[in-house]
Simulated assay, not measured.
Amino acid sequence: MNNTRNIWQNFDFLLFGAGLILSILGIALIRSSIAGNIALADHPNRQTTFLIISLVVLFVVAAIDYKYWITLIAPMYLVIMAFLGVVLTAEARFGAVRWLEVGQILIQPSEFAKIVIILALSNTFANVKSNNLKVNTILRSALVVGGLLTLIFLQPNLSMTIVILVLWAAYLWIGGIKIRFTLIFVAIIMVVILIGAFTGFSFLEDYQRDRISNFLFPDPDARYGDTYNVDQALITIGTGGWFGQGYNQSSQVQLRFLKVRHTDFIFSVLAAEFGLIGTLIVIALLVLVIIRCFYISQNAADSFGSLIAYGFGVLIFFQTAVNIGVNLNIIPVTGLTLPFISYGGSSLLTLFLGIGMVESVAMRSPKRK
């Protein structure tokens, strides 16, 4: 009993509190972004339900010693592969097949694939000594990544494919990959890009090619064309000023000029309603989550726990940077959501599942004085 009590004393309330505040704010922004759309009226309640479930999952996972997940990595990997295979036979939505329909609930297995990839790569790299990354470890990690990556790319889900590749690159970097291997990977990427350029990126779907071409060569006369969403996002952000127009008061949002406003472009809703000050506060909370993950990684009791926390820190950082970059038209539209804020039950559940694992690492790490 005393041992259990001592473990919970190491629970990271800063990490938990930041994630909870962001999620509650996200529900409020989703409610505002609906803007009277009857088809989306149940979304805030759904997100609230998923938040409650996610909090329960967080505490259950935190109570479990993270080392137990090592024995479950292989079964989880196979289950996710099976789900991704079933998804490919499902009905396409928005030009892709990414969701499994269970009653009234849509589940996105690729979101859970991120959890499995982080656990699998953490286990693969846990025994790598500093700056002594072997070729066989690189090949084993490539096989781990490649199995799920292929099925996700075939959905097609290019954004999630990039996320997994970034996670792999982050683990290779922290494992101390040698410069010659880095140059080989860079060369392969350049070859793929050149082949894609010469073939018109024929291996991508039409809408994916359009996103890239519209970003690189936007049509200045296309008022209601393919750049409409990004143009409206920039206008919406610009209306916020320093302090915003107020909750539920943005004309761009309430008159529905801004599309996909409860998922991909919810950062624009935030900027319009709460202004620059509000966005900086939210970014600060997201940065706090990332810093706490890296802090826990640095002070973990073993390499496996350290790499779990490191992986989730990288994941949240990358998704945050990409989503904000899309809203600011710095990078092409990807479809990645803003962590904890954007609508999505699977995304929210996997985020808190990941935070629960990081908390498990923190609770079983030596207490730093």
Rank of each mutant, 00 (worst) to 15 (best):
N3P: 02
N6G: 05
D12R: 06
D12Q: 07
L20R: 04
I21S: 11
G36K: 06
L40E: 12
D42N: 10
H43T: 08
N45L: 15
T48V: 10
I52R: 07
S54P: 05
A63N: 14
Y68A: 07
V87P: 04
E91W: 02
G95A: 13
L100K: 04
I107E: 00
P109N: 07
S110K: 03
I115Y: 01
I117K: 01
N123D: 10
T124W: 11
N132I: 05
V135Q: 12
I138A: 12
V145R: 04
G146A: 05
I152W: 09
T161H: 02
T161Q: 02
L165Y: 09
A169T: 07
I177F: 10
I188Y: 06
I189M: 14
T199L: 08
T199K: 06
F201H: 08
N214C: 07
D221M: 14
N229V: 10
D231W: 04
F265I: 06
F267G: 03
S268L: 05
A272M: 05
L280A: 10
V282K: 03
V282H: 03
I290K: 02
A301N: 13
Y310Q: 05
F317H: 03
A321S: 10
V322C: 05
N329C: 10
T337K: 04
P339M: 13
F340V: 11
I341E: 00
Y343D: 00
G345C: 02
L348A: 06
G354V: 06
I355S: 01
E359I: 15
P366D: 12
R368F: 08
